[in-house]
């Protein structure tokens, strides 16, 4: 009985705590929340332990949360750089156009302003593709994979926009597609901007294609000759679970197959009345499945010869 009372008491306390906290959270006016955001919270941790000289206490450094950056004073030199491109993903052979925007946020001129961009592996700068507005670079040093532009001066509050083209070579597939542009000027802290471009293999993809046919073999050689009709709507299962249906002529093709060893088999339930035909010429093809070694980007063939069946109850 006592125990139950205690339980009841505890439950009541818990409920009270819930209700109180609910009301408290709503009682605080929203202005205080905004105030709290601009407040600076100081946090310090301490730890106690028993050392060789008895109990000891160690104290961490102080950290601050919520401290807003002071607005850039006129005395602080500051540059801002933004980097974008005309596409998020590219394939070898594409030309991507990068765009840089450098702004002087301070009150003092950046003289001279230098912009450098190091291109990632496999990207080639397209010669003479730099276009800058509103001012033109006084000096441009370009190599295949890097770009350095020097502008005479960027006044306070001014911006300069630079666009240039980059050609993706097959090597780009091995690179990470991330490049970093940097803007710097004497007396200014250099600023950087990165842009990540997804590199797709595109024409260099190593996926292969499997094609084949299901047909009624009349001379039992495993090849389709005139007079050997294709079987429509036959089902071929691949080792990865792909299910392929033949067309009315008994043909099928499967694109984007990962290279490697691929196995396909015929679903005999899809062609009632037919079963796998014997191959009188190649013992290897007297098998329920076809095995293809698909080289990267290669073409594999899976032909299934069928013949009218009997004795279905045996299998």
């Amino acid at each position: 009985m006592r125990r139950n009372q205690r339980r009841l008491y505890r439950g009541l306390l818990f409920w009270l705590a819930l209700v109180l906290s609910y009301f408290l959270s709503h009682a605080v006016p929203p202005s205080t929340v905004a105030q709290a955001q601009s407040q600076i919270f100081v946090n310090q941790a301490s730890a106690q332990f028993v050392g060789p000289n008895g109990p000891a206490t160690t104290v961490s450094n102080q950290t601050q949360v919520g401290a807003t950056q002071p607005p850039p004073g006129p005395e602080l030199p500051l540059l801002q750089i933004t980097k974008t491109a005309d596409r998020a993903a590219a394939e070898p052979g594409d030309v991507a156009i990068y765009r840089l925007l450098v702004t002087n946020l301070s009150t003092q001129p950046a003289t001279p302003l230098t912009i450098t961009d190091q291109l990632p592996l496999g990207m080639l700068y397209v010669p003479n593709s730099v276009q800058a507005t509103p001012q033109q670079p006084t000096q441009a040093v370009t190599t295949d994979s890097s770009l350095t532009l020097t502008f005479a001066s960027l006044g306070p509050g001014e911006s300069v926009s630079v666009a240039y083209g980059v050609l993706l070579t097959p090597d780009a597939v091995r690179g990470n597609g991330r490049n970093i542009a940097q803007a710097s000027a004497p007396g200014f802290t250099p600023v950087t901007a990165a842009y990540q471009m997804t590199i797709r293999p595109g024409i260099l993809a190593d996926c292969g294609t499997i094609l084949g046919r299901v047909f009624v073999d009349k001379n039992f050689d495993g090849q389709q000759q005139p007079g050997e009709a294709g079987v429509p709507n036959a089902v071929i299962f691949m080792d990865d679970g792909n299910r392929i249906l033949t067309d009315p002529d008994g043909l099928f093709s499967l694109a984007n197959v990962l290279p490697g060893y691929r196995v396909g088999t015929l679903d005999l339930y899809s062609l009632p009345g037919y079963t796998l035909a014997p191959n009188l010429y190649r013992i290897e093809e007297n098998s329920a499945s076809r095995f293809v070694r698909l080289s990267p980007g290669g073409l594999g063939r899976m032909n299934f010869a069928v013949t009218p069946t009997f004795g279905e109850e045996q299998s």
């Binding site: 039992f220 079963t275 014997p278 009188l280 007297n286 013949t307």
Partner: peptide, 22 residues
Amino acid sequence: RATKTTPPSDIFVSALAPPVDA
């Protein structure tokens, strides 16, 4: 068998019939 044989029949009419299997 792994694959069937050429069609077994009561009467098979063909010039030089295919062998039953390989």
